[in-house]
Design a binder for these strands. Structure first.
Lengths: 231, 231
DNA sequence: GTGTTCTAAACTGTATACAGCGCTGTCGAA
DNA sequence: TTCGACAGCGCTGTATACAGTTTAGAACAC
């Protein structure tokens, strides 16, 4: 993290983080000159980074009006959840076929290693990171880099909403719907993968993902309410 | 098509087409100054377009060395075929559920309308475009824009190899493995969709796509051989 | 003839400058 | 009072200029 290399890369990373966390509010117009002074770069590398982010779906670009933050709508989030489901299930299919026993063992070992942290973890951001890591490793078993790249992108774009979701569950303090289910679902998937039981694993994975996507509408509403409160 | 708007958009569209057709050879380094004079723009909008293309997977960017054309490898193509399968099958799942009868009817009507062109078509580029259109419309039934966006991108990135594939089939003049199978497969899928028979449709679609992906290695070899012959 | 080092050209990455467009806010007229 | 036009400002989009780095080529040693 010491030297991020070129300006563009550093700026790009910063802006992407900001976009992920909705530091830019949905639909908000980005002022380039303001960002240049904030990030201490000229407009040239800034705009190069912004263009990348447009291509990745984090921003939009209106001709003659500049760059805007992506909107936040239930439809969009639902679409991304479906996309995630598509990518993960396909990865699972291939992972069960091509992954070596050693690779699967390592995957399960990771789950075991993090197991104790699942409910003892106070920091929801950390918990979410663990969950994403689990799913990325699962996808990684397929050996399909393109698939993983896209999944990473999708995860980043829905991360904010998922975080809101976790906050809500934590707030309800309802363990049966909360973290424990997280863990047990992951366990079930991992076990099925270890047994090379594609169908069981697929069903469990799909249920695990789609479960979250059902409450999208309320979730986005909740997200909005949290977006505009001063932290 | 008259006025492509800003320079960036025009340059971007041109460069993307060139990348799709492998006018840049795999791994080739792009000379920016050469491109500026070729496209009659300065380096600023050129680089913005190039950055977008990097984010979309058409180019790569090496620090201090500039932009390169994406590599062309069997592994990569196979990954993209799998990705395509993931996206299309998921779209199909939802399409069968959410599409109205009218929408499905229109979809089938398109297939019927183009039906006669399938084997009478000499221009393989045109044939390929028809095939892509069919699959995009099929995916469109899901109503999932994000999914369609990604599918479009994947299709563009494998288009060259698919074209080579078609040329090969045409060369063999083997109708049983050629265009007719194309059409009958599409028919089978469309029928299953119309009957809201998800499983049959899924099986047919997956087979239709994976069938092509089996011969990836020879196909990429063939692609290379065609890439460097003067047209 | 082959390998190595040094020099110069070329190219990338970034900053700055400029033109054109859109937006806003005020002033005037109905 | 409200609607519309005009002026001023700000911002985007593009071109150009400059510094640092890489690469290619030539000269020289082995």
């Amino acid at each position: 993290m010491a030297d991020q290399g070129s300006s563009v890369d550093r700026v790009y990373a910063t802006l992407r983080d900001m976009a992920i966390n909705f530091d830019f509010k949905p639909g908000e117009r980005l002022n380039e000159t303001a960002l240049t002074s904030k990030l201490n770069v000229s407009r040239t590398p800034l705009r190069e980074a912004l263009n990348r982010l447009v291509a990745e779906g984090f921003l939009t670009l209106a001709k003659g009006q500049g760059f805007f933050c992506r909107p936040l709508s239930p439809e969009q989030i639902l679409e991304l959840y479906q996309l995630r489901c598509a990518l993960e299930t396909e990865a699972l299919r291939h992972g069960v076929e091509v992954a070596t026993d050693a690779e699967i063992a390592e995957f399960c070992a990771y789950l075991n290693a993090t197991e104790t942290t699942y409910d003892s973890c106070d920091d929801l951001t950390e918990l979410l990171k663990m969950d994403e890591e689990f799913h990325m490793r699962l996808a990684g078993l397929s050996g399909n880099n393109e698939l993983c790249r896209m999944l990473k992108n999708v995860n980043e774009r829905i991360r904010y909403v998922r975080l809101v979701n976790l906050r809500q569950l934590r707030g309800m303090d309802c363990t049966e719907a909360g973290d424990n289910t997280f863990l047990s679902a992951h366990r079930a998937i991992a076990n099925a993968v270890q047994n090379r039981d594609t169908q069981t694993a697929l069903t469990a994975l799909r249920a695990h993902i789609e479960r979250r996507s059902e409450q999208t509408i309320e979730l986005v509403r909740l997200a909005y309410s949290q977006l505009y409160v001063p932290s």
